[in-house]
């Protein structure tokens, strides 16, 4: 189990990582492990405006479908095209090739309201 120290986390297990002026969003390693094999990811179209806490997509594992929530408000500027062909990237590389969307944040302070890597680790019972 890994926690990307450079990212911040929502209690619903999405991570948000600042990359230049954009926020990279995906789900944590803990989340992908809990979900099991991921077989489909449904994501919004680029250009969509979404508020923090709104559903931006769905991740379908072998077991069930789960909603994905915006960790920050903003405009979806890019969607990971690789997940269409290989949703398993979310299992294998949640913080890297398994990212889901890039968001142009409307309020950068949203990031501060998220859990730090350390706090997130504690919340999921990691030392």
């Amino acid at each position: 189990m890994s926690i990307d120290a450079a990212a911040r986390y929502a209690e619903s297990h999405e991570y948000a990582k600042l990359e230049g002026s954009l926020v990279l969003v995906g789900i944590s390693d803990h989340a992908q492990e809990e979900l099991g094999d991921i077989v489909f990811v449904e994501l919004p179209k680029a250009g969509k405006l979404l508020a923090k806490g709104q559903v931006f997509g769905t991740v379908e594992s072998v077991k069930a479908a789960s909603d994905l929530y915006m960790p920050v408000s903003g405009e979806v500027s890019e969607v990971n095209p690789a997940l269409q062909a290989d949703a398993g990237l979310v299992n294998r590389e949640p913080y890297r090739k398994g990212w889901m969307i890039k968001v142009k944040p409307s309020n950068i302070c949203d990031l501060d309201a998220l859990l730090s890597a350390e706090a997130y680790g504690k919340s999921i019972g990691e030392a």
């Binding site: 809990e34 094999d37 789960s66 994905l68």
Partner: peptide, 17 residues
């Protein structure tokens, strides 16, 4: 994301479904 529970038998082993 909701956890998936309530089974007495393994949905999958550590190998993955």
């Amino acid at each position: 994301m909701a956890p998936f529970a309530g089974y007495d038998m393994p949905i999958s082993y550590p190998t993955g479904a």
